[in-house]
Design a protein around this nucleic acid. Structure first.
Lengths: 221, 221
DNA sequence: AATTTCGGATAGTGGCACTATCCATCGCTG
DNA sequence: CAGCGATGGATAGTGCCACTATCCGAAATT
């Protein structure tokens, strides 16, 4: 298959495919002549994976590159692969602010208390510190991590367990697992977050009595 | 307080404060002379709110403007306010692709079955359709909404109920509620998503036996 | 033979969130 | 009350990102 067919089948414009080739997200096609190349099923699958990560997961091109590198690195176990996808999905960088450092320390202490096996450099720690820091700036001062995060811990663990359990068992062939993990992490995040928003809207409608506007419910048959 | 103090207290650079003033995210300070203005506590609070939405929620400046407009519109009830924050947090636009439309229709049917009171134009519906569409492109064809989203419904509802219940009761003064809702929606999303990632990492470590790399756990005391 | 398409390279675009520079006051300091 | 840094307001520029457009000479198709 040539580039135009690859483009047509995947729905990605030709210039964008070329861009991905340049960036190394897609391996080059097999050259049949100095200026003619053939692409296969593998290219198509990878292209779809890239789009899923970018469109569903909101992953940056640079981060997609990291994920793909992890995918291709057969020395990585499934656990590391999952980590690399997560880290790509959660861009975060620590700050210098002393107040932030305190929030970060509190978050880490809180997580230690949970006994979870989580890398010390997990970006999600940083995100939690951001949240705690922001809340503290607003509400005078106290705000313990436990008060903010506590209610979520059980539920998060429950969901995460179910998600991991739904993946192929440890012995499965790596190829089958790898992409499933990459797509799974990105999509489950998006799916749950959207469902949660909808459930919140429903709960809010029940508690606060729905919209006060006519125009806000234009076609609510 | 003048602009430099506003900047120092909030940690936002002066040029950025000026930018927000230009964009109408911050109301102008009270002019004490043709080129001298005074800012108050309200400006500081609003500035912090803007930063929380931008940094924690990842909301765009344009969307922040919408949220602030909803906040200032006293004719809006709490429910509508919550909606406007959510809609700002979830940028989404429908597509033309017929396959996508089918996924969208399936999502809507699925949601109808749940009986949730959700606006027909809720962007979260679009996000769900994106997810379903992406999954269908990957896995041959079937993929029912119920299979993908079903496991999350109960949990999402449970979390959302708890979050809404933790907010001030319907009769509370609007001012107190408004910002709480805006910040709450943005931060709880970030917090839960980060916790879920960590729980996933922990579950994956337990199931897949942790990292296969030395370097992946450099300081895992 | 004529037209289309190709791969590859280089350069350009549009959006976004700031950031820098100017300039004529302002107002506190010495 | 002179000097000097800060202020408000306006205009323009920056850096990043994810593409997108154009060009070219060489296939491939018609």
């Amino acid at each position: 298959m040539r580039i135009s067919e690859l483009s047509r089948t995947s729905g990605v414009p030709v210039p964008t495919v070329k861009f991905y080739l340049r960036e190394g997200l897609l391996p080059p096609g097999e050259l049949t002549s100095p200026n003619q190349a053939a692409y296969g099923e593998a290219h198509l699958r990878r292209l779809r994976l890239i789009r899923a990560l970018v469109e569903i997961g909101g992953v940056s091109i640079a981060a997609v590159k990291d994920v793909l590198a992890a995918l291709d690195d057969t020395s990585l176990g499934v656990h590391d692969l999952l980590g690399s996808v997560q880290y790509a999905l959660i861009p975060a960088q620590p700050r210098d602010d002393p107040e932030w450092r305190e929030a970060f320390a509190d978050v880490n202490a809180f997580l230690d208390g949970l006994g979870w096996r989580v890398r010390p450099d997990a970006p999600a720690r940083i995100r939690l510190a951001d949240v705690l820091h922001a809340l503290r700036r607003r509400d005078g001062e106290p705000v313990a991590p436990d008060a903010v995060f506590g209610p979520y811990v059980q539920v998060a663990a429950q969901i995460a367990d179910a998600e991991i359990a739904s993946m192929a068992p440890p012995g499965s062939p790596r190829e089958a697992l790898a992409e499933q993990v990459a797509v799974g992490v990105a999509t489950s995040e998006a799916a749950f977050s959207a469902l949660r928003a909808l459930a919140q809207e429903d709960a809010s409608a029940r508690r606060y009595g729905g919209s006060t506007l006519e125009s806000a419910r234009p076609a609510d048959q």
